[in-house]
Design a protein around this nucleic acid. Sequence first.
DNA 1: CCTATTTGTCTATTGATATAGACAACCATA
DNA 2: TATGGTTGTCTATATCAATAGACAAATAGG
Lengths: 243, 243
Amino acid sequence: MTREAARVQRRSGIALWRQIADRIRLAIGAGEFSERLPPEVDLAERFGVNRHTVRSAISALVQEGVLRAEQGRGTFIERKRKLAYPIGARTRFSEGLQGQTRDRRGILLAHEVVEADQTTIEALGLSEGATVVRLETLSEADGRPISRATSFFPAHRFGNIEGHYAETGSITSALKAYGVPDYFRRSTVISARHASDADLADLKLSPGAIVLVTVYVNVDPDGKPVQFSETRFAADVVELSVS
Amino acid sequence: MTREAARVQRRSGIALWRQIADRIRLAIGAGEFSERLPPEVDLAERFGVNRHTVRSAISALVQEGVLRAEQGRGTFIERKRKLAYPIGARTRFSEGLQGQTRDRRGILLAHEVVEADQTTIEALGLSEGATVVRLETLSEADGRPISRATSFFPAHRFGNIEGHYAETGSITSALKAYGVPDYFRRSTVISARHASDADLADLKLSPGAIVLVTVYVNVDPDGKPVQFSETRFAADVVELSVS
DNA sequence: CCTATTTGTCTATTGATATAGACAACCATA
DNA sequence: TATGGTTGTCTATATCAATAGACAAATAGG
């Protein structure tokens, strides 16, 4: 949609190879190169840098799984389109990617019962000193990590939710086990930032990658808050769709 | 909400001073430092780098207008909170920031009548070869640039919309002049990426900054598409709120 | 089987980042 | 006015990022 300025910025604190890697990834997402990347020499000229700098960028994208280089033949695109993740009153991870992927699952990374901090108390409508179950989870689609979430559930109502989640890999199923037949999203706040070290590792991103962050509250049919959560999506793989 | 890992990443293509600047900006947005930044020596130890590296980071943030350094006294926070920009069926820029800012206005940067490309044809439901008015606009609040948008309007219906917009600084008013009393948002797709050179300049951002991108279609009360648009928000200043 | 095209590897050099230490300048306050 | 805490400036050195050029290795096509 927007025609990109070709030049790249020097001494900006972002290495040229990283700027170029970001641009190539973006261009691929926009469907710019159909199948094969232009030769390194052409790209170098296009970005106004040395061929070796382009090679560093390509090598990073190969590491990421976006490109595949073959000596003598060329450099080819391995993964193309972004996944569209819908957000609305009935957002669920499992329903979210209907038809876009085959295999989906949620993985429990860690869990803990803690005293709720001020933010969580307000979000879940708890009283001072209440405890919550914290779940650290990772969601995968087709074996590729998609999102990383930190969720809080009131401990008095969802005492052992980590067990149900670990078993089923689904928040929807885990809540059902506690007699919550259905739930709705009350609010979502979306922001973007550079990924933290931990998220980089879990989402298998390269340093400097961007994450889309959604902070939200889910409520049961009576309007009672059941879940307060922050989810981080890899911005180069996922886009959010509000309907 | 998430406890940040303290370490910073070496040879990642992102200079240490920039990583630290990003972290400090983020921490300020989260209300971490109330009024004054810790001394440079403390920050250096905290991030595990040399004091001079921290100074580079601070100097960038001073340039950006986030911090203000006073010799002998300390370094102080100049601009704190993010703006919450609501997104939903009735999203309008002018109504969006109610109560959060005083002075708001839209500025026309450029306009052009062009043949619609495939994406625009589909979004606006036009027929092959139709022409559209393209508007490049910048929105400011309290004198600070907030967002940068590229919008398309069907030319047959909104022939001289650039004139109305330039006069009023508002899409809502401009559409009213063409007999569109009200409009609704049909769909919004949200993504995040590094800002382009042009956006960096217009939004007065430092290189490497992140933008939140919304792509959407507005329809009139009859459901007819009137506007197809991509808006870029500075991610360190704005967060999106879906309700 | 040759040739042009393309990615892969090596060496050398320059410029930008980061570290280290020392000290000056300024401020608040005891 | 003396002292401790803070930001500002300078010099020197080491490491990383980027440029430059040359050639090897693999592939595709005549």
